[in-house]
Amino acid sequence: MVRKVPVASSRAFKACKNCRYLVPVHESRCPNCGSSDFVEEWSGMVIILSPERSKVAKALGITKPGRYALQLGPT
């Protein structure tokens, strides 16, 4: 059986310039760092589910779970 999970597409997010946290486009403030500086164009994504155990989170210096962009700006 195919599981159907409703999800938003990548265009539904913008990336915080300060911490790269991905937030829905309608948000005006980054819930992670409080910045209001965003970029619409980003590429690559990392979803951190367990910052304590993830090697990726440690390499990127991420301490809070969530979705982050890997590269900012046009590709």
Binding site: L49, S50, K55, L70, Q71
Partner: peptide, 10 residues
């Protein structure tokens, strides 16, 4: 936790 992170490489 079963999955620690999910990476979409650029």
């Amino acid at each position: 936790e079963e999955i620690y992170s999910v990476i979409v490489p650029p």
